[in-house]
Design a protein around this nucleic acid. Structure first.
Lengths: 152, 152
DNA sequence: GTTTGACCGAGTGGTTCACTCGGGTTACCA
DNA sequence: TGGTAACCCGAGTGAACCACTCGGTCAAAC
């Protein structure tokens, strides 16, 4: 796999949340998400444990259970999700925690990394799950069966 | 160490290049860079082997040897250095290589990662080593001994 | 009372990271 | 001409991390 700095945890988490969001109020099971997105069911469980504890999704236990968004999708930013599942989005450690480097204030690259961090946080912070769901809708995959007759 | 996605290789490489750049035409040894920046000499050798092969620095062998910039610092972007030492700066693999994911054109997060990638490349691509050297100069550390008398 | 599906902790194989080690080879310099 | 400073190179290594899996418990629907 070619290198990347956003882990599959955050990637899968985002994709799964879009899927969950598409269902609206109805709970969606991870099994459904897993097959629809081609992901590991058990790995998703791990991810959703974190999302639930963070108050991003609510769970419904038992048969016909699953997950739904705990908030409206416009109140969930990509930044929140990625930071939660990734731990951090900072390019270098000193951007977040100044104690990890003894050369703070002496390092010529400080401004550079700080600008990169700012740019990333800006993109992720201004994009909400609602935006992603809308984009996903534009791809209009698998149109709902009951809408099929409207076409052609 | 707190998490980060720019490796020490790229970080150290940038810092070392600033140090090399400050010396202008004169070759600077890695030993000097290592002590000045508090880095491992042997690790720097590994990094500079890559920088040299990429045509970013020239080497001077033998005693009193070292490295100097192969181009003027305004022709070396942070992006070039980071991509070289990091391999890639893409947040997820599909941004660079579409074959790594079978869901290209079907994935709701595609645009998001593409925007993040664009933002990062924009920041790194518009910053040259000359800029970083100038910033570093503003911190005016260790003023040259022969300029000392000009102060106070 | 069986099926569905959320919940939980532990384990694991592979890879990457951040180096180090131990040697060359080249050139200055006395 | 010999010593020393420096670049050059490949291999190794311990720790951490990633992307999962396994095996099981608990809760609600049918």
């Amino acid at each position: 796999m070619s290198p990347m700095w956003v882990s599959t945890k955050a990637q899968y988490g985002m994709r799964a949340l879009i899927e969950i969001g598409l269902a609206g109020d109805r709970a969606t099971s991870l099994k459904t998400v897993a097959t629809r997105e081609g992901l590991s069911h058990q790995y998703l469980e791990q991810i959703f444990a974190v999302l639930r504890r963070a108050g991003i999704v609510d769970s419904v236990r038992g048969a016909r259970g699953g997950y739904r968004l705990a908030r409206t999708p416009d109140r969930i930013t990509a930044l929140e999700v990625v930071e939660l599942l990734e731990g951090s989005v900072a390019p270098v450690s000193c951007v977040e925690d100044e104690d990890t480097c003894d050369r703070v204030g002496v390092c010529g690259t400080e401004g550079l990394w700080r600008d990169v961090d700012r740019a990333v946080r800006d993109v992720l912070g201004t994009r909400t799950l609602a935006d992603l769901i809308a984009e996903r809708d534009l791809l209009h995959l698998e149109p709902a069966p009951d809408l099929q007759h409207l076409g052609a």
